[in-house]
Design a protein around this nucleic acid. Sequence first.
DNA 1: ATCCTCATGTAAGACGTTACATGATTTA
DNA 2: TAAATCATGTAACGTCTTACATGAGGAT
Lengths: 180, 180
Amino acid sequence: MSLRHAILVLLQDEEASGYDLAREFANSIGLVWNATHQQIYLELGKLNEQNMVHYRHVPQDGKPDKKLYRITDEGRQELVRWLRRPAAPARVRDAFMVKVAGAALADPETLLGELDQLVQQRKERLANFEAEARKLERQSEGNSRFQHLTLRRGILDQEAWLAWAEEVREVLEDTLSHQH
Amino acid sequence: MSLRHAILVLLQDEEASGYDLAREFANSIGLVWNATHQQIYLELGKLNEQNMVHYRHVPQDGKPDKKLYRITDEGRQELVRWLRRPAAPARVRDAFMVKVAGAALADPETLLGELDQLVQQRKERLANFEAEARKLERQSEGNSRFQHLTLRRGILDQEAWLAWAEEVREVLEDTLSHQH
DNA sequence: ATCCTCATGTAAGACGTTACATGATTTA
DNA sequence: TAAATCATGTAACGTCTTACATGAGGAT
């Protein structure tokens, strides 16, 4: 279980609300570890009980109040302990890839449509990562180097996926032309 | 839930036991969708109850008996229905990546050691995928093209990961040299 | 008017992991 | 002699998703 550790990593450099964290999980870090707001609020509750994070209540007007969390010494110690232990093997659930493997039974046109949508999404994500990476390169302070590596992973991953998508497109278009 | 669909895709071309499927999930398709034998046996039980697969009991000597499963027409129909619906978004749980993001608090030497191990694993996987891909290229029949695409995804993914790992190594080695 | 963003949460149920159980044969 | 391979399963527990709930302010 390292949702807690992903949260602690994010809280290393910044105070954040559950909502803030959920946004980060949906964007940058989401490629690597994803979580919905329900999971995050639950985990923040547990981390707070265990004194690994603390929060201050921030009233706002026009908007709902929020809780800004920050990591505690105990939380930092837990992170250090976890960093020393070998990481659990990566897990993936990519339903679109399962579809491509089973594409012999699929309608090529429908799959091509879905492929186009995913290509669009991936291109947008790539552009976001590249913009974020450029920002970080400008400021180049100490521990931003590791955040930069995370973005580099995102960039290389999108590029590899897009290259693969072109191969898929060729095969699907070829299948289509042989059907008519 | 598409563990069931991943299983049905694998059973499209071949009769297989739960054990056989578990091996495939540990290797080729595992990059895309992973599952342990417990999950697979459970799901095969459900698929059988719902008449999406059938099995025949095969006694063996020297080895335990096995059940060889094959997909039914109903199973194939379910697969076709699923292939038409948009795929669920991909989910990832990559603890090592979380570690890199939090590497500011980590011991660079320990992380480098873990990186080396993962590089080894990925290189072996890459070699396996490339060998499998060459086999498929030789026989080039109808629906092996989609299996080939799955392998291509695996290959591109390993290559991208290995390229990224070199960037990580540089940063970690640099961190190390500035510590002394 | 309707949807999106901000902001937090609960609860039920589905899904997944870890541990346990068995037992013959082959390889190191 | 110990560990791995083949082969199937159950039970307990932990994690994750889906649905529900609230409510103001801003954008379309």
